[in-house]
Design a protein around this nucleic acid. Structure first.
Lengths: 324, 324
DNA sequence: GTGAAAGCGCTAACAG
DNA sequence: CTGTTAGCGCTTTCAC
């Protein structure tokens, strides 16, 4: 920048101001400076800039599984919203491992990130302390609130109720679930929701028909198998998410169990491949693009100075396809 | 850091050395410093560090479509390889738009990134000049070499030959292709490869049976429809990638065209959903994890000082499933 | 084994 | 409308 200033015969402050537009610069001067910039192929060093201003222009998106298209879509959406503001998104895949999650949070404060959008999987509130101490805004995308952080959360009650109703209307009575791991942050709120609904609707979700595992295809297959080996086996299975449901379908095919003939299957999220499998997966759609948009908005408001905690609810919808 | 130094009664240089281990520090001193660090909840500011050292610790991964699981997997793999070295991966989704691609490259030099791994879609060699001028190592993952950059490239010849052989052995003679857009970087090397193979095997890939479009599901559907509306319509269709092939399957179902009964379909990459659709997609597997690993290795070598351009070839394999 | 101090490239007062 | 200048927080000689 000093080079540019010299070449243009101005001070480096002026160069800085033509770049940032933070104060008026004479048309003539601007032209000369811009010419010099082009000449020398100069590019601002954003590290120096951020060091000086105390704020970087990168936002971290921390997710448990980037190969789940739901999160890939979330990433794309967030990036699209933040880009026009000059904010960059650094996508971090934690593989649902707590130490990885923590490592990324630590990195976020080391890098003085502008903000963090995170779907915590095994983190606890305490893990966020360093972030708030550093004054880095956090938006949590999860079913449950998380300390001081802003929250984007699904309203899936109506959708789940509808799903459950469809299932019972079809005469199914033995409802089971392949839920998330027991040590996940907040347990598994989707399980709790289903439980509550089951009570309301006069159905049961017996504890022994709830199996648990990671949010992976393999775990879905394993969980489904365990369910099917029970003497009192379910005739409808809700899944923690679509990836798990796909795994269940793998196993059903392997075991020669008919879906939905023998067992109804309900996914969650409507990840892109839910409509790809055959039969098509009936699921509860939680629209990733909307989640990304909401998270972006919350983050931007924080950056603009909002201090009060805020929650945005994104409505989920029941999507009837071929597995119920 | 000054605070820590004061609290520990040492100089900030010593604190720095405790953190980096770049010179021996007395056991006693180290303990005191570490206590102070813990006490104050101090975290290094990597921006300041990078400014000082002139190198950041983030690597950009620039891809055309993050919602294509192939790239999501690539991202995961690259991240896994680079993480242990303290390098972070910033994933950038360009949506195959040239201006976005350029914007990310510009950002890479502004941020003085440690390196860039990119699958260029519409970029040309010139777009990389600023990067090399800034001395930022670039690894290109593509079918064709790209200026000075290191290259990870598929060897898909044998696999494609096998695919083509299967198709012709099944008595198919009218080979078509849904290729990438005409203005994509390097045209469509997969198309060229198929053309060459067709000649070798005494089959034809007539120009009119080649349609073009983006690497999207919609474009795949549109391309397949155009093909099917021709009077001389293909009985086997190769696709630019699996996403395109899935789009073609959508359309086939819509039009009541049997796959593989009426038309054989061959994808490319073996993205995760290739085995999800029914019938399962026959494809040419290009293993994303291997690509990520290779890219990481190339990048690391460069960072370690290698100067000569290098190419790593990753072998692709024919995967016979249900669409041929 | 430790400290002092220069300076990375930029921004934002402050002064003119 | 423009210039001067003081750091942002760190690393790294150089000196002890």
């Amino acid at each position: 920048m000093a080079d540019v200033a010299r070449a243009a015969g101005v001070s480096s402050a002026t160069v800085s101001y033509v770049l940032s537009g933070k104060r008026p610069v004479a048309e003539e001067t601007r032209r000369v400076v811009e010419a010099a910039i082009a000449d020398l192929g100069f590019t601002v060093n954003t590290m120096a800039r951020s060091l000086r201003t105390g704020r970087s222009n990168v936002v971290a998106l921390v997710v448990p599984d980037l190969s789940n298209p739901f999160y890939a879509q979330l990433a794309a959406s967030l990036q699209k919203e933040l880009r026009p503001l000059g904010l960059h998104v650094m996508v971090c895949d934690t593989q649902a491992v707590r130490d990885e999650e923590r490592a990324f949070l630590r990195e976020a404060v080391q890098q003085r990130f502008a903000g963090v959008v995170i779907t915590p999987f095994r983190l606890v509130a305490k893990d966020f302390e360093a972030l708030s101490a550093a004054g880095i805004p956090v938006v949590v995308s999860a079913d449950l609130p998380f300390g001081e952080a802003d929250l984007v959360t699904p309203d899936a009650r109506a959708a789940m109720r509808q799903a459950l109703t469809e299932v019972t209307d079809a005469g199914r009575r033995r409802i089971g679930m392949i839920a998330g791991p027991r040590d996940a942050t907040g347990g598994d709120p989707r399980l709790e929701l289903l439980r509550g609904l089951a009570v309301q609707l006069g159905t049961a979700l017996p504890g022994r028909l709830v199996v648990r595992g990671e949010h992976t295809r393999e775990a879905g297959a394993a969980g489904f198998e365990r369910l099917m080996r029970m003497k009192y086996r379910p005739d409808a299975v809700f899944c923690a998410n679509d990836v798990v449901a796909i795994g269940a379908m793998d196993k059903a095919e392997e075991l020669g169990i008919g879906i939905p003939g023998d067992v109804a299957l309900i996914g969650h999220d409507d990840a892109s491949f839910a409509s790809l499998v055959r039969p098509r997966l009936t699921t509860v759609r939680y629209p990733a693009p909307d989640v990304g948009r909401a998270a972006a908005r919350l983050l931007i408001e924080r950056l603009d100075g909002r201090v009060a905690r805020k929650t945005v609810t994104v409505k989920a919808h029941f999507v009837a396809r071929g597995t119920v």
